[in-house]
């Protein structure tokens, strides 16, 4: 959601450096070298490569958007290192960007585009003591509180706007697709109630991979009838039913046991 800000400057494009378990504590233990004790637990870890140790710097995105002409080189210079270094911006399809780790506080900066010093008119500006202008950025530690930041983003973003006015007025344009609607919901810990889905006209479409029913596949005659083809993992724990015939209901489900699978058919009269 952070991308919905209109300007060229993104303060929080980076996910907050994950401490263990991605907690949103403010303290950044500056010792990524104390690598996780167990490599096995890695899936929740996201390391930020460029992470200055022992400091409380935050990654800040600088972006140069050129609408009119396509510049060759863009650099950014700033007060953070007393205007020492020209940091090159990396070109992508339509813009230039880079990430600089900055300490909290106020920083002035200016772009150096094709050998000319320019400011971005879309960003906050201030006059410098040389008679020109500089852009200015405020780094606020609180912005890096992930959840706060997301909330702020939401408040200012289009989606948040939509969420707030979504209720009656916006239903005019034809049926919004599920994905669009999904974007309007917040992620949370509460199980949605039935009412949240009541507006949908039809049940969700069956994912195509579930149409591959192993019980319907022909098995060669010489095969052991007790053995079925190996199921796809997506089929597990789904209930399959045979249309009721002769007063008998047949249900089936496949479960995993360690590395193997059991497909159970239940015959029950009704």
């Amino acid at each position: 959601m952070g991308n919905n800000q209109p300007g060229g400057m993104y303060k929080r494009d980076r996910p907050f450096d994950s401490e263990k378990g991605g907690s949103h504590s403010k303290s950044r233990s500056g010792a990524p070298s104390s690598s996780p004790p167990n490599e096995d637990e890695c899936p929740v870890q996201m390391k930020i490569a460029k992470n200055d140790e022992r400091s409380n710097k935050f990654p800040v995105v600088f972006k140069w958007n050129s609408t009119s002409s396509q510049p060759k080189n863009v650099y950014v210079c700033g007060s953070w290192d007393k205007w020492n270094l020209r940091i090159p911006l990396v070109k992508s399809t339509s813009d230039f960007s880079t990430i600089v780790d900055l300490e909290p506080g106020k920083h002035e900066y200016k772009f150096y585009v094709d050998h000319k010093w320019v400011v971005d008119d879309n960003q906050q500006k201030t006059s410098n003591n040389l008679g020109g202008e500089n852009n200015v950025v405020m780094i606020d530690e609180a912005d890096f509180e992930v959840f706060d930041a997301l909330d702020k983003d939401l408040a200012s973003s289009n989606a948040g706007e939509a969420l707030r006015n979504s209720h009656p007025s916006k239903e005019s344009h034809d049926t919004p697709n599920d994905r669009e609607l999904e974007k309007l919901h917040q992620f949370g810990q509460e199980t949605p109630t039935r009412a949240d889905f009541s507006k949908a006209a039809a049940p969700p479409v069956l994912p195509p991979h579930l149409l591959q029913v192993i019980l319907n596949k022909d098995t060669p005659v010489q095969c052991d009838p007790n053995v079925l083809p190996e199921p796809d993992h997506v089929m597990l724990n789904h209930l399959y039913a045979l249309s009721i015939k002769d007063g008998v209901m047949v249900l089936s489900a496949t479960h995993r046991y360690r590395k193997k699978f059991v497909t159970t058919l239940l015959y029950k009269p009704i």
Partner: peptide
């Protein structure tokens, strides 16, 4: 055990 086993279970009222 085979990779995928088929089992039939009948309830005893069938």
């Amino acid at each position: 055990m085979a990779r995928n086993n088929k089992l039939i279970v009948f309830t005893n009222d069938i």
